[in-house]
Design a protein around this nucleic acid. Structure first.
Length: 762
DNA sequence: AGCACGCCGACT
DNA sequence: GTCGGCGTGCTC
């Protein structure tokens, strides 16, 4: 047997593999995915075996000291995904691995929890003693002993020792119980257990308890529902993908209420019948007990939940339930895309356009894209579901990269509301100035308040931000570099870009139509809130945007207040539309649709359209749909017209056409490289040097923004600079970017992270 | 990331 | 003479 060499990733961000000698006594257990203890410099550290080799380039190798745990904790496919991620997002492999493996598994905290467990004598578990590292068998899957002798004891015991009788009764009924649970049910339970044990009626031993995050909920079992024809067609397409050897991604475009979840459930059932498992990703905001119950209700006991709200112990147990196959379905937020489901047959990404799928620290992966990549690596089916797909996803469906299943009808056949377009130019003409609220909208608000109904007002800008807009043609002044609308500062009139910090004097006529009327301070959510509160002093007005939801549970708080009727008018950015039904909302106003539609940054239009469809699908009382007002300066623009008809495809075509006219490549990639330092000059200097280097090394496939690296707002004492790279050859550029970053040997006190997005800003 | 080495100033 | 400040460099 030749000497074996293990390639080990040590848990330090060196972005390098280290070779170790595999001693003969460990050869059996050392395999890819296994955690090992290795000597490293003068200390010992942990690492993961990522590969094996016959020999090494180096002559002197240190041996692996020990194998940690029972077996591999990460599959070779997931290792491959981590490697791919580290290239694509230009992050060290170790960092990518950190995203893939939860901390509780890497650091082996949490562990299995052992508790005293009482059973009737003779009901001892088969020999599989659950050591801390071993597979933990549930306490329920053992043969039940004959309860007759114990039952006979019950009545005499009842007279003399009622507590013992209670305990015994419970143990007989459940087949076994944890001592701590019995103690919770009644006082003196511990003593009663001890007495029963002495009499030889029960046995007490240590048992691994699975911490169950859903334990407190009673879950009703549900049965598959009959499907409408559109659902049947979608399911057939997905089932086909599942049954193919190299399945393609299916984009499930289904309007709100078209029954997407039932399609997911039946597709998952199809996968389970083949002995495979599934992963369901839901956006964080949708990760409520109700959502989980829909999956739990259909696949009782097989579902593991993974999200940030779990305790370490719960996360540990849920993850291990998946690893050793006691659960085959993982439901969770973005990190659940790395769930150890094996074999994996299906990944569902619900509301795939949601931006919460993006990790906000390095590696800044998008879980939706990771799902697509994992699907390709593991040859499993991937379903992206949405009522309003991200434009790049629909583009992929259009160009044949994804298969498309459309569900255009609602299951409940509820009518969609009428969307009314309000021409703000007429309003400006009539009043002689540009107003925030049209008279029509104010009248409509008044009518709702009189009837004690609720109103949602949407504005795509937060804070006091005001922008410069032409009331004749609707042109909005945008930053040349970032294409973000400039913020207009009234005192000391100038325009400033909130992304790159650039400043510009105010032009004296409109660049679009040369009209000198080009001067208008628009509003952000904060000013809109103040204005509406002044106009309707008796109404309860609240604002919901990134500023008012900075604290952890602020989201839920505001939405709960709104739902329970404590708020009459909710003003906010598109986050006000998330997750919930608001039956008492009968009016929705989009204050300034121009800020979203037909703009170079396609995410803005996407957001406006998403809001319209999401809220429109939910507003109204029973059979009566709500009313939607869209205020705009460009009422006949095709994008606005498509929005009026809630016509996603029309809107999509319009966006693509708009980009074609402007000679922008439809959709490719924008890479934002962020460098930060505590010392401003240092960050600036390193960023400038790196930017220069990348401009040379990435050409001609990628364009590095020509100007000096853009400063970003200071965060928690960090000065930040951003280098923007545009490319249409993302995969190739990613690989070269990583090499260039390694070669640049950036100083450790200037950390960087890389964000990759479809080219929203052109 | 640790943990060395190493080269300077402040103390017993 | 030694203790200890943190800059620099290496870890199979």
């Amino acid at each position: 047997v030749p000497d074996r060499v293990a390639k080990v990733l040590v848990d330090v961000a060196l972005d390098r593999e280290f070779d170790y000698h595999v001693p003969a006594h460990l050869a059996e257990r050392v395999a890819p995915g296994v955690q090992v203890a290795v000597p490293f410099g003068r200390r010992e550290t942990r690492g993961f075996v990522v590969g094996l080799a016959e020999r090494s380039e180096r002559s002197e190798l240190k041996p692996i000291r020990a194998v940690v745990g029972k077996g591999p904790v990460i599959s070779e496919k997931l290792l491959e995904l981590a490697r791919w991620m580290s290239v694509y997002y230009a992050a060290p492999v170790e960092q990518a691995l950190r995203a893939v493996l939860p901390g509780v598994v890497r650091h082996r905290q949490g562990r299995f929890k052992e508790r005293l467990f009482v059973t009737l004598r003779g009901a001892e578990a088969p020999a599989a003693g659950p050591a801390a590292d071993a597979v933990a068998p549930g306490p329920c899957d053992r043969p039940a002993p004959d309860p007759t002798p114990a039952l006979r004891l019950l009545d005499p015991l009842r007279l003399r020792a009622p507590r013992q009788a209670d305990v015994l009764e419970r143990v007989i009924a459940t087949g076994g119980a944890y001592v701590h649970q019995l103690a919770r049910a009644g006082p003196g339970a511990e003593a009663a257990v001890r007495a029963l044990e002495k009499k030889g009626v029960v046995t007490v031993r240590k048992e691994t308890e699975t911490r169950d995050p859903l334990a407190r909920h009673t879950i009703l079992k549900t049965e598959p529902l009959p499907l409408m024809p559109q659902q049947q067609d979608a399911l057939r397409l997905i089932a086909q993908a599942i049954d193919t050897r190299h399945p393609s991604v299916v984009l499930l475009h289904g309007v709100t209420g078209s029954g997407k979840t039932e399609v997911y459930l039946q597709a998952m059932d199809h996968v389970l019948r083949q002995g495979k498992g599934a992963i369901v990703l839901v956006p964080e905001i949708a990760l409520t007990p109700q959502t989980l119950e829909r999956f739990q209700g259909r696949f009782a006991g097989q579902v593991a939940v993974l999200h940030s709200g779990l305790s370490e112990g719960e996360r540990h147990d849920e993850w291990h339930r998946l690893l050793d196959g006691r659960a085959r379905i993982a439901v969770g937020a973005r990190s659940a895309v790395f769930a150890p489901v094996c074999p994996l047959g299906l990944i569902v990404v619900d509301e795939e356009q949601e931006h919460t799928y993006k990790q906000d620290e390095a590696p800044r992966y998008n879980a939706r894209d990771m799902a697509v990549m994992r699907g390709r690596l593991e040859d499993c089916a991937v379903v992206l579901g949405s009522a309003t797909p991200a434009l790049e996803s629909f583009w992929n469906a259009r160009t044949g990269k994804y298969a498309l299943a459309a569900m255009p009808h609602r299951v409940d056949h509820r009518r969609m509301p009428a969307v009314r377009v309000v021409d703000m130019r007429v309003e400006a003409e009539r009043t002689g100035r540009v107003s925030v609220f049209s008279r029509e909208l104010l009248d409509a608000i008044r009518a709702r308040l009189d009837r004690a109904e609720q109103v949602m007002l949407f504005l795509n800008r937060r804070g006091y931000a005001t922008s410069l807009l032409c009331p004749k043609c609707g042109h909005v002044a945008t930053c040349d570099q970032c294409c973000l609308p400039y913020t207009y500062h009234r005192q000391n009139p100038r325009l400033s870009c909130h992304l790159c910090g650039g400043l510009r004097p105010v032009p004296d006529r409109c660049p679009g139509c040369q009209d000198p009327a080009f001067k208008f301070a628009g509003v952000g959510t904060q000013r809109a809130e103040e204005a509406i509160a002044k106009l309707f002093p008796k109404a309860a007005v609240r604002r919901m945007d990134a500023d008012t939801t900075a604290t952890k549970d602020a989201h839920w708080h505001i939405l709960r207040e709104f739902r329970t009727g404590k708020i009459d008018i909710l003003v906010g950015t598109q986050m006000i539309a998330k997750g919930l039904d608001f039956p008492n909302v009968t009016l929705i106003g989009v204050l300034h649709a121009d800020l979203g539609m037909h703009m170079p940054d396609f995410r803005a239009g996407e957001r406006t359209f998403q809001l319209l469809t999401q809220v429109a699908g939910r507003a109204g009382r029973g059979e009566i749909p709500g009313e939607v007002f869209v205020q705009t300066f460009t009422p006949f623009h095709p994008a606005v017209q498509a929005a009026r008809r809630l016509d996603y495809e029309g809107f999509f075509e319009q966006e693509v056409e708009f980009r074609r006219q402007l000679q922008y490549p439809p959709f490719s990639h924008l890479v934002c490289l962020e460098l930060r330092s505590r010392v401003e000059a240092r960050a600036q200097f390193v960023a400038a040097a790196l930017s220069e280097r990348l401009r040379k090394e990435l050409a001609p496939q990628a364009a590095v923004a020509a100007a000096a690296p853009a400063p970003l707002p200071k965060v928690k004492g960090w000065y930040r600079f951003q280098i923007m790279i545009r490319t249409r050859a993302m995969q190739a550029v990613a690989a070269r970017l990583k090499v260039a970053l390694q070669a640049a040997r950036l100083p450790a006190d200037v950390p960087y992270s890389v964000d990759v997005d479809a080219l929203a800003i052109l």
